[in-house]
Amino acid sequence: MSEKPVIGITKPTRGDFFAYAAIWLAVKRAGGRPMKLTAKHPKTDQWISGLVLGGGADIYPELYEGQPRQAASYDRDRDEMEKFWARRAHDERLPVLGICRGAQLLNVVNGGTLYENINDVFETEYPSSLPGHMFYRKAIDIMEGSLLARITGDTSRVVNSIHKQAVNRPGDGLKVTAKEKNGLIQAIEDPECAYYLGVQFHPEFLIYRKGDQKIFDALVNAATERDAQRREAIGDARPPSPPDSARSLQ
Rank of each mutant, 00 (worst) to 15 (best):
W47C: 10
W85G: 09
E62K: 12
P42G: 05
G153N: 08
E232V: 14
N117S: 14
R29H: 14
Q213H: 00
L130Y: 08
R101Y: 02
R247C: 04
R231P: 14
H202L: 13
Q165C: 13
A166E: 04
K43R: 15
E116C: 07
D120Y: 08
A30T: 03
A72M: 03
E116I: 12
T38F: 01
V6P: 08
E180G: 07
A71R: 08
I23M: 01
A233N: 09
P42F: 05
I7S: 15
G31A: 02
T44G: 10
I151Y: 14
W47T: 10
T38H: 02
I7L: 13
L25T: 12
G55H: 02
V158W: 15
L37H: 09
E65L: 12
Y196K: 06
A139Q: 14
Q165G: 03
P12H: 02
A72G: 13
N110M: 07
R238D: 07
V167S: 11
G55F: 00
D79Q: 00
N160H: 13
R137K: 10
I7R: 14
R69M: 15
A89G: 04
V199N: 02
R29E: 07
R169N: 01
F17I: 08
L25K: 13
G235E: 00
I188R: 05
D190F: 03
P68A: 15
K4P: 12
T113E: 09
D227P: 02
A222M: 02
E232G: 14
F201S: 00
D79C: 08
A222D: 02
S2A: 11
Q165V: 13
L206Q: 05
M1H: 12
A72I: 07
T13L: 09
A233L: 05
P42D: 12
P242M: 03
S146N: 01
A222S: 11
E125S: 15
S245R: 12
G198M: 07
E232F: 15
N119T: 10
P170I: 05
L147S: 13
L94N: 09
M81Q: 11
M35Y: 04
M143D: 15
Y196A: 10
D141F: 06
D212M: 11
S245W: 04
G211Y: 02
V176N: 08
A149D: 03
V121Q: 15
E116W: 03
D45Y: 11
P243L: 07
D172F: 11
R29W: 05
R150W: 04
T177S: 12
V158C: 14
F17K: 09
K179N: 08
R247P: 09
G102R: 07
F17R: 11
A222H: 03
G98V: 00
S161W: 01
N182P: 11
G15C: 11
L51F: 00
Q213A: 09
L147M: 12
G112D: 06
V199W: 06
V96L: 10
G102E: 00
D244V: 10
H41F: 11
S146T: 10
N182L: 08
